[in-house]
C-alpha cells in the first residue's frame, strides 16, 4: 500500500475560520500589490473583532478595508497609503483621528527588526536607525539603550510574533511549497516570524513543477494553501494581472466620504456589495464580472 502525502489545500472559508477574535495576524503584499484578498474578505464576513494586524511594511487599502469593517484594534505598519489613489488610507486616517485605532508606530527597518527578533526567538533586535527621531518617545515598546560593547546609543526593537501570517503568492504545490512571481516583497519575513502561515495562490501546481525550479521557491512548510484565482483583486498580482484602478477609485471615494464628511453610507454600500453579500470568492468574482477581470492583463 502506498501512503500519499497529505494535501494542505483548504478553501478561503476554512482559512478564515482559523482567525479568532483578538489574534495577531500578519498580511503580506505591498501597497497596491499581492494581498490575500479572498481570505481578507472572508475574515470580514465572519465578523472577527479585536485583531492586531501586522501589515506589510507599507500597508494599503487591504488593511484600510479591514479597519473600516471594524475588525482591527491595533495596527503594526510603517505606512498606510494608496499611492496616487490617496496619499493616506482614508479609513485608517479616520479611525486614528477618532481615537478608535491603536498604531504601533515604527519605521520600515524597525518593523523588520521586530519580525526578525520573533523569527530568531530573541526578545529584541538592536537597531541604530531611528536614533534622533520621535519613535522611541511615543512607542513605549521601543527602548533606547547603550550598546554594552561600544557604549553608543541604540534602539531595542521588541519581537512581534504573529499567530498567523496570511500571504499571497502566484503558485504553490499541495504540500506547502510556495513560489512567488517577482520579488515577494517582505512576505518571507512574515512567514519566518509567524507561528503558522496560510498562503493564498492563483494556481496550485504539481510538486514536480516546483522541483524544476527550486530557486523560485520562496517559502516552504507553510500550513495551508488556498486556491483563489484573481484572489488579489482589486490589487495587482505580478505575472497575472494589474490593479483594478476603477475599483480602487470606487473604494477610495466611498471611504473618503466617511473620512471627510462622516457619512458611512457609501462605505457600507461598498462592504455589502463586494464583501458581505457574495458568500464565496467565486461569488465575489461574479460581482466584479468576467469582462473587467480579463481586461486587467499585465502586459
Amino acid at each position: 500500500m502506498v501512503l500519499e502525502r497529505k494535501s494542505l489545500v483548504i478553501d478561503e472559508r476554512d482559512a478564515a475560520s482559523w482567525i479568532r477574535d483578538g489574534m495577531t495576524i500578519a498580511i503580506g503584499g505591498f501597497i497596491n500589490s499581492s494581498h490575500p484578498m479572498a481570505i481578507v474578505r472572508q475574515i470580514i464576513r465572519r465578523g472577527v473583532k479585536g485583531l492586531t494586524v501586522v501589515g506589510p511594511a507599507s500597508g494599503g487599502l487591504d488593511l484600510d478595508l479591514l479597519i473600516g469593517a471594524g475588525c482591527v484594534r491595533k495596527l503594526v505598519t510603517a505606512y498606510m497609503g494608496g499611492e496616487h489613489y490617496c496619499p493616506v488610507a482614508p479609513m485608517f486616517r479616520a479611525a486614528v483621528e477618532r481615537g478608535e485605532l491603536e498604531v504601533w508606530e515604527c519605521d520600515e527597518g524597525m518593523y523588520y527588526c521586530a519580525l526578525r527578533a520573533a523569527a530568531q526567538g530573541l526578545p529584541f533586535t538592536p537597531w541604530k536607525a531611528g536614533i534622533g527621531t520621535s519613535f522611541p518617545e511615543i512607542n513605549p515598546d521601543i527602548k533606547v539603550f547603550n550598546d554594552p560593547i561600544t557604549g553608543e546609543p541604540l534602539l531595542a526593537i521588541p519581537a512581534i510574533k504573529p499567530d498567523i501570517a496570511i500571504i499571497y503568492a502566484a503558485h504553490a504545490d499541495p504540500y506547502g511549497n510556495v513560489q512567488h512571481i517577482g520579488t515577494g516583497f517582505g512576505d518571507r519575513a512574515l512567514w519566518r516570524a509567524a507561528d503558522r502561515t496560510i498562503v493564498q495562490v492563483e494556481r496550485i501546481i504539481p510538486n514536480e513543477e516546483v522541483r524544476k525550479n527550486p530557486l523560485a521557491t520562496s517559502l516552504y512548510g507553510v500550513d495551508a494553501i488556498v486556491r483563489a484565482p484573481y484572489g488579489s483583486h482589486p490589487f495587482a498580482a505580478p505575472g497575472y494581472y494589474i490593479e483594478d484602478a476603477e475599483h480602487l477609485r470606487e473604494y477610495v471615494a466611498a471611504a473618503t466620504t466617511y473620512a471627510k464628511y462622516g457619512d458611512r453610507g457609501p462605505f457600507e454600500a461598498y462592504l455589502r456589495k463586494y464583501v458581505l453579500e457574495p458568500e464565496t470568492h467565486a461569488d465575489y468574482l461574479q460581482v466584479i464580472g468576467i469582462k473587467r477581470l480579463i481586461a486587467l492583463h499585465e502586459y
Binding site: 511594511a57 510603517a78 486616517r93 520600515e108 536607525a129
Partner: peptide, 25 residues
C-alpha cells in the same frame, strides 16, 4: 506621521515608511 499632538492628532498622515531609518543611517 501626524499633524498636532501624537495622542490626539489633528491630521493623521500615512506614516514614515523608510524615512525614519534612512535619516539616521
Amino acid at each position: 506621521t501626524v499633524i498636532g499632538d501624537y495622542a490626539r492628532p489633528k491630521v493623521r498622515l500615512p506614516g514614515s515608511a523608510g524615512m525614519g531609518d534612512m535619516g539616521s543611517l
